[in-house]
Computed example of a mutant assay.
Amino acid sequence: MFTPTGRARLREELIAAARCDDDVVGAALVGSAATGREDAWSDIDLVLQIARDVDPDTVAARWTERLYERGAVDHLDVIAGGVLYRVFLLASTLQVDLSFWPEGTFRGTEPGFELLFGTPQPATTPKDPDTGHLIGMGWLHALHARSAIARSRPWQAVMMLDQLRDQVLALACARHGLNPHHGREADRLAEPLLDALGKARAGAVNGAELARSHRALLEASPTKSPGTIRPWRPAWPPRCASWQPSPSTDPRPHLIANAGLRDLDRFSGREPGRSRHSGGEAGEHGQQQQGTGLVQRGVVVAALG
Rank of each mutant, 00 (worst) to 15 (best):
L164W: 04
D166N: 07
Q167M: 14
Q167P: 03
Q167A: 12
V168F: 11
V168L: 14
L169F: 08
L169R: 11
A170W: 00
A170K: 15
A170F: 03
L171E: 07
A172D: 12
A172I: 00
A172N: 04
C173K: 02
C173M: 08
A174V: 01
R175I: 00
R175S: 15
R175N: 05
G177A: 10
L178V: 01
L178Q: 10
L178S: 02
N179P: 00
N179L: 10
P180K: 11
P180W: 06
P180L: 05
H181E: 13
H181R: 14
H182Q: 14
G183R: 08
G183F: 05
G183N: 06
R184F: 09
R184C: 09
A186M: 06
A186Y: 02
A186D: 09
R188K: 13
R188L: 14
L189K: 11
A190Y: 09
A190C: 13
A190P: 03
E191W: 10
P192C: 08
L194F: 00
D195Q: 14
D195R: 08
A196L: 02
L197H: 01
L197Q: 09
G198H: 13
K199E: 13
K199L: 12
A200C: 01
R201W: 08
R201N: 15
A202M: 04
G203S: 02
A204V: 04
A204Y: 04
A204W: 05
V205K: 09
N206M: 07
G207Y: 04
A208C: 09
A208E: 15
A208Y: 00
E209S: 07
E209K: 08
L210K: 04
A211H: 06
R212P: 00
R212V: 04
R212T: 05
S213K: 09
H214F: 06
R215T: 08
L217E: 08
L217Q: 11
L218V: 03
E219A: 09
E219F: 10
A220S: 14
A220I: 01
A220E: 07
A220P: 01
S221C: 15
S221Q: 12
T223V: 01
K224I: 12
K224N: 13
S225C: 10
S225K: 15
G227L: 06
T228K: 05
I229E: 08
R230K: 12
R230L: 00
P231R: 14
P231D: 13
W232H: 15
R233V: 07
P234W: 10
W236D: 01
W236Y: 03
P237T: 11
